[in-house]
Design a protein around this nucleic acid. Structure first.
Length: 270
DNA sequence: ATTGACTCCTGATGGC
DNA sequence: TGCCATCAGGAGTCAA
């Protein structure tokens, strides 16, 4: 479910409640996530949370010694509870603070992750080989152009590949390709340098606007207050199959690309 | 090295 | 009401 804007929204929501706070204990009700929640997470007990960061769609909670990696998968969400509340269905993990606040991880589909790292977090296997942050200076047309040479993979899959660039998921990939006028099936290696300029601009623009709206809620995304995001009303193509293209008026198409639904305008995107 | 298919899991929705 | 098929904001893993 959550892409970069939704994870960023979650981070901004939880950070003020967690930063510089001490962990009282971690309760694991159901360790069966994407990987089993390790018993090591109890090492957080008694430690202060020294920083919270986002890397792609991963949330990093750094402690004095080690840290937690949290990924929301398709259906995960984090909530801040100011006072104790009985757990509900799929509330798999709680991080209880000594001041009584609780960070609660809920994930119906259990594709998310809740992991412990002993040493430097960025050297963790899951993070080590990730591509640049799309909203950083490293993410440029030149970079995408160079990485894409001689590659036949569809441009939509290419920009959704976290080893190329992090954080761009199924919604924002469709949106950015529409904004840049690029057909989602076009081979990444057959996109010109100039059109990569437009694509980089589109990716940054759509992600920044989505963050401002608190992310996209299509079905079940909620922020750390339990509120939805409001970017869905600004989507140009995603989930609009059969509707009129806002740009040219012809019909938005839906096609499965790399086992994911993709939306595009066959006239505007080439 | 790249690629594409498969997999994990629960819940919502729609057709019959 | 029930039953079944299909689909869903991710991404690691495997085989070719």
């Amino acid at each position: 479910m959550p892409e970069l804007p939704e994870v960023e929204t979650t981070l901004r929501g939880i950070e003020p409640h967690l930063l510089n706070q001490r962990v009282a204990r971690i309760i694991v009700r159901d360790p069966r996530l994407r990987w089993p929640v390790p018993t090591d997470v109890s090492k957080a007990k008694g430690q202060t949370i020294t920083s919270l960061e986002r890397r792609g769609k991963y949330l990093l909670l750094k402690l004095q010694q080690g840290g937690l990696i949290i990924h929301l998968g398709m259906s995960g969400s984090l909530r801040i509870l100011q006072e104790p509340r009985p757990p509900e269905k799929h509330d798999h993990v709680d991080v209880e603070l000594q001041n009584g606040v609780c960070l609660r991880f809920n994930d119906p589909r259990r594709f998310g992750a809740f992991l412990w790292v002993d040493g430097e977090m960025q050297s963790h296997e899951l993070l080590r080989n990730l591509g640049p942050e799309p909203l950083s200076g490293e993410f440029t047309a030149g970079y995408l152009y160079q990485r894409s040479r001689n590659r036949s993979v569809a441009i939509k899959n290419f920009i959704m590949n976290g080893h190329i660039v992090v954080g761009v998921g199924n919604i924002y990939a469709s949106e950015a390709l529409f904004m840049a006028g690029i057909h989602p099936l076009r081979a990444a290696g057959r996109v010109s340098r100039q059109r990569y300029e437009g694509l980089v601009e589109a990716i940054c623009d759509v992600l920044e606007r989505a963050i401002r709206r608190g992310g996209t809620t299509l079905r079940d995304f909620v922020n750390s207050d339990g509120a939805p995001g409001y970017f869905a009303r600004e989507l140009l193509v995603y989930d609009r199959a059969g509707s009129d293209c806002f740009q040219c008026g012809c019909t938005i198409k839906q096609k499965t690309i790399g086992q994911r639904s993709s939306y595009y305008c066959p006239a505007c995107q080439r």
